[in-house]
Design a binder for these strands. Sequence first.
DNA 1: GTCAGGATCAACCCTTTGGTTGATGGCGGC
DNA 2: GCCGCCATCAACCAAAGGGTTGATCCTGAC
Lengths: 210, 210
Amino acid sequence: MSDPIRLLLADDHPVVRAGLRAVLATEPDLEVVAEAATAEQAVALAERDRVDVVLMDLQFGAGMHGAEATAAITGRAGSPVVLVLTTYDTDADILAAVEAGASGYLLKDAPPEELAAAVRAAAAGRSALAPAVAHRLIDRMRAPGTALSRRETEVLQLVADGLSNQQISSRLHVSQATVKTHLVHVYGKLGVDSRTAAVAAARARGLIRR
Amino acid sequence: MSDPIRLLLADDHPVVRAGLRAVLATEPDLEVVAEAATAEQAVALAERDRVDVVLMDLQFGAGMHGAEATAAITGRAGSPVVLVLTTYDTDADILAAVEAGASGYLLKDAPPEELAAAVRAAAAGRSALAPAVAHRLIDRMRAPGTALSRRETEVLQLVADGLSNQQISSRLHVSQATVKTHLVHVYGKLGVDSRTAAVAAARARGLIRR
DNA sequence: GTCAGGATCAACCCTTTGGTTGATGGCGGC
DNA sequence: GCCGCCATCAACCAAAGGGTTGATCCTGAC
């Protein structure tokens, strides 16, 4: 029999780490060799401890974001694969994680068997997506006309942060006319007719950060 | 030595339940006697299984909300005490839980010792608040002038849901002038000058539902 | 009984936002 | 090379939202 898969758990909640450890302990071919309570720690330990797979949360209380840590880890040669394990399935989070080099995206409400299966898939070089996440990606592919462009999402996120068109235009170094054009397109795609309604709709569909 | 404290875990995440079970298993005077994956289940099991303390999440994937379940459990005679254990420390959530009869409010990032201490406090009839939560409640007491009134919060929540002043006025059966007045007061209290900025600020401070 | 604060409404004015039309340049796919 | 999509900008008009003043009524606190 081959060596067990070496895991690093990165989550800021002690209870979640204990839960993952307990759940994965029942799998003889998986071994948790390290835990990190911050994203910075995760980057350091992933390099030091000869880890095969990192289970990475996205939201940490403070400091580096999980997606940044994922990019830092996967950017190195001979690096472990990163499985993102988070509570939310927003488009923005999923795309950020995939772009950062994550091999999979799991939701925390996943049953234990699914978790173990995803870890083995990732270790074997395959990718692992939770059904809900896969569904969202497929929707995005199938209806490209209604998907927001990168720039549109960026503008909408700033609207959600409470900025006026004026403030957005200077933040992005474009004219107010451009901001308005982007927003009109966003309204059309989301089927709304005001900035607040657009933010509400985008939140409901998981298009922007919460 | 007296009988152990009998616990019910109510959380829709299997991993979190496993984590709580693992963390609490190290405490000899605490015993987990039941688990619920939905709020409805929690209400049923709390009645059936002679439970002393319920550890209750607020957000369940679907169905009843944790606050409703808390009210249903604490409303009965001889009922167990409910300790709310959640990820978010928003004013709205905290107040709803306290009004529903919760004996304490803990955050999921709490260290294990704090968790056990809070369970013992609740079982002994004392209340248990996470430091961050206590801080928020004290702030609220100390600065009543800046706290939003019930009606103002209601209007602001509808704004966050994407409604126009027009729609809000007919939803609440008041004039648009009234809605505008409430919003102007909200802007003053939050230190902002637009509806989107008010929503962003209120979200950041946990004044409205997420 | 008074007083503060909340909830309600009106009238006014000004700024911001929304909606439209039209135009330019870049980039990737067929 | 052309077409479609994206990003950029301008000018214009109509509508919604924001800011102010001032007023009434009610309720709870002192």
